[in-house]
Amino acid sequence: MKTFNAKINVTLKKSVLDPQGKTILEALHSLGFQDASDVRAGKHFELTLNANNEIDAQNRVKEMCDKLLVNPVIEQYEISIS
C-alpha cells in the first residue's frame, strides 16, 4: 500500500447555466476587466488515500466522485493523482 494525494476539480457542465459565474463576471467587468468572459465557478477537493498503485487510487477516487462528491446531473470532474 502506498499513500496517494488526489486533487479533484468539479465544474458545472457546459450546458448548465452558472448564476455564480455570471455574477462574478459582472463584478470583474465593473472592476475594469473587460477582457474577461465566460466565468465558471467550481469546487476543488484534495484528499489522501492508500492504494496499491496509481490506477487503483484513480479508480477509487472516481467511485467517490460518482457516489458523493459530484452530482452528474449538473457537474463534471477531473482527477489528478500524485
Binding site: L12, V16, L17, D18, P19, Q20, T23, N71, V73, I74
Partner: peptide
C-alpha cells in the same frame, strides 16, 4: 425525482 438544484438566479 429527476433533476438538480442550482443557486437562485439572484444568488
Amino acid at each position: 425525482l429527476p433533476g438538480a438544484m442550482l443557486p437562485n438566479r439572484s444568488l
